[in-house]
């Protein structure tokens, strides 16, 4: 066991990361707990919000994909003439034989009535007297292309007067709406990341100012700028990693609570959680790393700027 651990510690990969994070070394710049704690809390909250924004974006992406693929994988044919049952059946057969069509069936009168009811046409017995349209529901292969045009051509060639509706009117709107949703989620994520980086940079600058005496001593003793920058960066990378982990855990707990609320039959607000898959939680694993990298960059820039002021 001891041999196993000593092997890990001697591993160059481990040594690189322990150096990067300043583990196993006495910090040359003092750590200020009073300053670090509030910053850890702020970054944790930002990270939790970031995780939730990213998961919301994932839900938005998946919902939009589901809606658009549902719309794109089906079309409807309105048979205007001839309308008799035998010809409708023939039109269904022609449709079934067209390339790219997975399934085709004529819509029953009962289903057509249901559809009309959904659009507010609940007019009781009068509905039976209405001339309902003759519709063929068509399921398409996911890779099908130009099937609508082909169907129009095939059915017209066989003497049918038809109108093929490929739902593009609706799918266009949905694609636009989902693009807006995705954009909003990504913007929220970006805004949170910028806020986190800015607050870390601010804290790093403040830390360097309060420790300017120590920085100056290191500088005068002959420490290269990169050495001092590494000292500052290692500390804030550690802080970012820890705060990121807290944030990710917080976000996971919130998602679990939202899921429980949804299972208890509560609000629409939590309904998105059912669109999440277990593998979407890679976002929570990556969040601390992103937080650590952002912290490292922010601290690096702040330290470099501060050192430039010294001779």
């Amino acid at each position: 066991m001891r041999f196993y651990f000593s092997k890990i510690f001697k591993n160059p990969f481990f040594q690189y990361f322990s150096k990067l994070l300043g583990i196993n070394e006495v910090a040359l710049l003092p750590t200020n707990g009073k300053q670090a704690r509030p910053l850890t809390i702020v970054v944790s909250i930002m990270c939790a919000l970031g995780c939730l924004a990213a998961l919301s974006a994932r839900i938005g992406f998946r919902a939009a994909d589901a809606w658009t693929s549902e719309l794109k994988s089906a079309l409807t044919i309105l048979v205007e003439a001839p309308k008799d049952e035998a010809n409708i059946l023939r039109a269904v057969q022609i449709t079934q034989q067209t390339k790219g069509v997975k399934s085709a069936s004529s819509m029953s009168r009962e289903k057509a009535k249901e559809l009309l009811k959904n659009y507010g046409a609940n007019i009781g017995s009068l509905l039976d007297e209405l001339p309902l349209p003759n519709l063929i529901e068509v399921g398409l292969d996911t890779n099908s292309k130009d099937t609508a045009k082909e169907l129009q051509a095939n059915l017209s060639a066989q003497g049918f007067k038809v109108e093929v509706d490929d739902h593009s009117r609706y799918s266009g709107e949905i694609v636009k709406t989902s693009a807006v949703l995705r954009g909003a989620a990504l913007l929220a994520l970006l805004a949170l990341m910028i806020a986190s980086v800015a607050s870390i940079a601010f804290a790093a600058r403040a830390a360097l100012e309060t420790q300017s005496e120590c920085v100056q001593i290191l500088h005068l003793i002959g420490a290269e700028d990169e050495f001092v920058i590494h000292e500052v960066q290692a500390r804030f990378t550690r802080l970012g990693l820890i705060a990121g982990a807290y944030g990710a855990i917080g976000a996971a707990i919130l998602i679990i609570i939202a899921n429980l609320i949804m299972q208890m039959g509560a609000s629409d607000l939590t309904s998105g959680t059912k669109l999440l898959r277990w593998w979407d939680f890679w976002i929570l694993l990556v969040a601390p790393l992103i937080s650590a990298i952002a912290s490292a960059l922010a601290a690096r820039i702040a330290a470099r700027d501060t050192l430039k002021e010294l001779v």
Partner: peptide, 11 residues
């Protein structure tokens, strides 16, 4: 600036 630390180490 990069050469100064080396000189400071001599002081």
């Amino acid at each position: 600036r990069n050469e100064l630390p080396e000189l400071r180490r001599e002081i």
